[in-house]
């Protein structure tokens, strides 16, 4: 667009690709929802402020997650009540986990296509659990009640379903030519 300066355009193009990844990182690091949202905004602002330091030869995703981790640690140092219990070792290990993850390096559009294909391949019990927990947005204790299971068993079964889905999505994304969007 004529009035957009080049810096803004480049930043926008990069940031919209990585914002979900930053959000996922923050979901692991910060449990409080409101604090997480505030932090997400602070991260976006910081990314814009230091965008000139970004090296385009590196993946923007990785750089953005690094900046996000720094913001979280700064917040924790300035107010320990704000981000309780977070250690720098934990933050570093989670950031490294994202670096290693093949899911984190794929665009969300491709993840989505793979997810939809994998949902159809889930066993019936997993399908029912996922449907209740995510598509009907029921809390886990309600899922447990409706399926006549203990809370503990429901958490385990859901975790297993997520792992199945994750493995399937990862496999599809790593199989060249099998996953694409028109």
């Amino acid at each position: 667009m004529a009035e957009c300066d080049d810096r803004q355009r480049r930043f926008l193009a990069e940031y919209v690709q990585c914002q979900q990844s930053v959000w996922q990182l923050l979901r692991l690091l910060i449990q409080d929802h409101h604090l997480r949202e505030d932090t997400c905004q602070a991260v976006a602002l910081r990314l814009w402020e230091v965008f000139d330091e970004y090296d385009p030869s590196r993946p923007f995703n990785s750089w953005a997650r690094g900046v996000a981790a720094k913001v979280v640690l700064e917040m924790q140092r300035s107010d320990r009540r704000a981000v309780p219990a977070v250690t720098s070792e934990w933050v570093a290990s989670v950031v490294e986990g994202f670096e290693r993850s093949p899911l984190a390096s794929n665009p969300s559009s491709e993840q989505f296509v793979a997810l939809e294909a994998c949902l159809g391949a889930l066993p019936p019990l997993s399908r029912e659990l996922i449907a209740k927990r995510y598509h009907e947005a029921l809390p886990v204790d309600e899922v447990a009640r409706q399926m006549s299971r203990t809370l503990e068993a429901t958490y385990k079964a859901l975790a297993r379903s997520l792992r199945l889905l994750g493995d399937c999505v990862r496999q599809r994304l790593s199989s060249a030519g099998e996953v694409h969007v028109s």
Partner: peptide, 17 residues
């Protein structure tokens, strides 16, 4: 950590789905 990262990504994808 890898399992946690994979879990949060899938959880997030499902929520957006």
């Amino acid at each position: 950590v890898d399992a946690l990262v994979q879990g949060v990504i899938i959880d997030d994808l499902l929520s957006r789905h």
